[in-house]
């Protein structure tokens, strides 16, 4: 049995053919190739089909409130910076219900990886438009088609100072694995928006659609050029796949907060000094 895999076959509650299976494969492969330790890896999620992922990977997992995986992941990391922390969820979970957390946790630059399965629909509740659904997209609830401008997570992340921004497609497992590895290694907040077909409820943005509407950035692309990245994240004619922006050397949340300035010991490992506690009232 290899790390992050289970000894026995597990029941997975995704539809046959769902893009989530490929993302799971890429995630496990990336963690194995990085030789990450499952006992020092935490997958954090909220609610949704994508948010089931932590239950299907053999390491620590936290499954909490709809939309609120990100603040949990940030605090897990802050309590023990030695951990590899990955927050994972879908477009409805992370960009809709969790939109506010998405904005404000990017500003903190936590050293975590953020995987968002973007299938442009709510799958768990059987097919309503999500924040990334495209204009005109018809569902049982958006009967005349979506009228809102779709949410652009990459542009939002870039504007908030995110230090690693990538887009991948579940149909290209090799590229996705490489990007996840780079994201986990990146020091700072790393967002990967992963296009993923919902085979049951989204008949528009299917495998062929993603194939036709994406292209991979070539080897000459300079991901350190922010101005160019700003143009790339706005491309919607065809969506670029790859690491769109990467900036090294920006201080992370843990490096910025005062409790880790003089003492690098994780908060979870620190003993309570009762003498200091009692001294507080005299200070």
């Amino acid at each position: 049995m290899k790390p992050f895999e289970f000894e026995n076959e597990i029941d997975i509650a995704w539809c046959p053919g769902c893009g989530n299976y490929s993302i799971r494969k890429a995630l496990i492969r990336a963690l194995q190739e990085l030789e990450a330790d499952p006992l020092h890896t935490v997958l954090v999620s909220g609610i949704g089909q994508a948010a089931k992922m932590p239950q299907y990977v053999n390491c620590h997992f936290f499954n909490g409130l709809h939309g609120r995986g990100l603040p949990v992941a940030v605090s897990v990391k802050a309590c023990n910076p030695h951990l590899t922390v990955i927050a994972e969820g879908g477009d409805g979970d992370m960009y809709g219900e969790g939109g506010n957390h998405f904005i404000h946790n990017i500003r903190r630059n936590p050293d975590i990886t953020h995987l968002v399965h973007n299938n442009m629909i709510y799958g768990l509740t059987k097919g309503q438009a999500s924040p990334t659904s495209q204009k005109g997209f018809v569902t049982n609830v958006q009967v005349d088609g979506v009228i809102n401008q779709p949410f652009n997570p990459l542009a939002v992340a870039l504007s908030l100072g995110a230090t690693f921004i990538a887009r991948a497609f579940s149909g290209d497992i090799d590229q996705l694995t490489d990007i996840i590895k780079a994201a986990v290694k990146h020091k700072g907040y790393a967002l990967i928006d992963i296009f993923q077909p919902c085979v049951t409820f989204n008949k528009t943005n299917n495998f062929a659609w993603y194939k036709e509407n994406t292209y991979s950035l070539d080897s000459h692309y300079d991901s350190s050029d922010k101005e160019n990245a700003a143009k790339k994240v706005m491309e919607t004619e065809k969506y670029p796949l790859g690491i769109i922006y990467r900036e090294n050397g920006v201080k992370t949340f843990v490096e910025k907060i005062n409790i880790y300035q003089d003492n690098k010991q994780p908060i979870v490992c620190r003993n309570r000094d009762l003498g200091k506690v009692n001294q507080l009232i005299n200070d």
Binding site: E97, Y122, T125, N140, V143
Partner: peptide, 19 residues
Amino acid sequence: GYPITPQTEISHYLAEALP
């Protein structure tokens, strides 16, 4: 509304009927 089981049918019905 916002989707959640077991009441999402209320949304589906009203999405059709209210307009």
